[in-house]
């Protein structure tokens, strides 16, 4: 969960503008887990709960 280096970010910007990567790919690669751990933890809990009740 490190910040994405500037060069990589700029390349991601370019690839997204060119339509070579999707918004989802851009989001995932830009974030690289940054600010996202709490959301993912809650999502994991929900997934477990659903699996348990299914």
């Amino acid at each position: 969960m490190d910040w994405v280096p500037k060069k990589v970010r700029h390349e991601l910007n370019r690839l997204y503008r060119m339509g070579e990567i999707s918004k989802k790919q851009l989001m995932d690669q830009m974030k690289n887990g940054l600010f996202d751990h709490e959301r993912l933890a809650v999502k994991k809990k929900l997934k477990r709960l659903l699996e348990k009740n299914d």
């Binding site: 970010r9 989001m27 690289n32 940054l34 959301r39 999502k43």
Partner: peptide, 17 residues
């Protein structure tokens, strides 16, 4: 909600950069 939350965390990354 999760989709929007994800959008917000992603926006946070763009703000930081």
């Amino acid at each position: 909600l999760d989709e929007r939350y994800e959008d917000e965390t992603y926006t946070m990354s763009q703000i930081v950069y």
